[in-house]
Design a protein around this nucleic acid. Structure first.
Lengths: 152, 152
DNA sequence: TGACTCATGTCAGCATTCTGACATAGCTTG
DNA sequence: CAAGCTATGTCAGAATGCTGACATGAGTCA
C-alpha cells in the first residue's frame, strides 16, 4: 500500500486523518445543533462569550477561527436577535466588549449540552491516558505549525 | 481553571483543540499552495486522482470532504484548464472516471512537495510512537462519531 | 509634539460552498 | 417484467466566509 515516493499517501497521512476527524466532528455538531436552529459558528461565539465575557469582535473571531469580518456579521445578527449586548461606545480604544444576555445564556445551555454529548461520543472508546496523549500531541502539532510560520 | 460544570471548557476540550489543529494545518497549506496558484480543495482533488485514478465526481467529493456539487464545479474548471480529463460518455452508469493529464501531474508534483513539507513540520516534534498513537486515536474518534450517527 | 506602527470595527465586492430539486442509470425484489 | 431504491450528475438559488480597503484609537519613539 505504500507509495512509490510520489505524493502524500492519503492512507497513512496524519494530515488527511486530521482533516477527516475535524470534518466528522463538524458534521456531528451540525447535526445536533440544527434542531436548535444554531450553526457551529453561532454556537462557538456564544460559548466563547460564556467563558470569557467581554471579548471583542476581533478576539471572538480568533477564538472561532474565522475572520473578524465574518464574526462582525454574525455578532450584529446575534445582537439584533437579543442574544448578545454591546455598549454603544467603546470604553477604551475601539473594541466593544460583548456579553451574553439572559436569553443568550438560555439558548446556549441546550446547545452546550448537545455539543458535550457529541464530544463524549467522540471520546467514548478512548482511555483517560489516550485522551491526555491526544491533547498533548495536538498541542505540539499546532505549535510546530505556527512557530516557523513561513520562516523556514 | 476548571469550569463550574457549565458549558464546554475550551481550555481542555479535545474537540476545540481538534478544530484548532485542523485550522492551523489548513492555514499552513493555503500559505504554501497560494504561490502555486492552487487552493486546498484544488490540491486535494489532484492528489486523490493521482493515488486513485478513475475516481468519479461523487467519489472525489467524499474524499475531499465537500459536496458533489462543489466538486463538480471544481472538476469542470480543472477539466477546462487541462489538468484532468473525463470521457464524454460514462462507461457504466452515470459516473465519469476522471484522470490526471500530464499537465495535472506536473502541477501536482510541486504542490505535493509543498504539502509534504508542511506535514513534516507539523510532525517535527513527535516521535514515531507518538505519531502512531495519534493515528490510532484519530481513527478511533472518527469511527465513534460515525458509528451511531444519530442512532443514540 | 509629531510620525510611525499596530489593532480594531466596518463597508463593499467577490469566491466558495451548501441546500434543494430534478432526471437518469443500475440494482434489487416481488 | 415492473416497481422501488440508491447513487450519480447537474442546474438554480442562497448562505456563508473571505479579501481588499478605509478610518479611527492607542501605544512607541525620536
Amino acid at each position: 500500500m505504500s507509495q512509490k515516493g510520489v505524493g502524500v499517501d492519503l492512507e497513512t497521512s496524519l494530515g488527511y486523518l486530521l482533516k477527516e476527524a475535524s470534518s466528522a466532528l463538524r458534521a456531528a455538531m451540525e447535526e445536533v445543533l440544527r434542531p436548535l436552529g444554531m450553526s457551529v459558528t453561532h454556537y462557538s461565539c456564544l460559548e466563547l462569550l460564556a467563558q470569557r465575557p467581554g471579548l471583542s469582535n476581533s478576539e471572538l473571531a480568533r477564538g472561532a477561527f474565522v475572520t473578524r469580518q465574518t464574526m462582525s456579521v454574525l455578532l450584529q445578527a446575534l445582537e439584533r436577535d437579543g442574544y448578545v449586548t454591546r455598549p454603544a461606545e467603546a470604553p477604551v480604544g475601539k473594541a466593544l466588549p460583548a456579553r451574553l444576555t439572559p436569553r443568550g445564556r438560555r439558548s446556549l445551555e441546550k446547545a452546550s449540552a448537545a455539543v458535550r454529548s457529541v464530544e463524549a461520543r467522540m471520546l467514548a472508546d478512548l482511555t483517560g491516558a489516550e485522551q491526555s496523549d491526544a491533547f498533548r500531541i495536538l498541542q505540539r502539532m499546532i505549535r510546530s505549525l505556527r512557530d516557523d510560520d513561513g520562516g523556514a
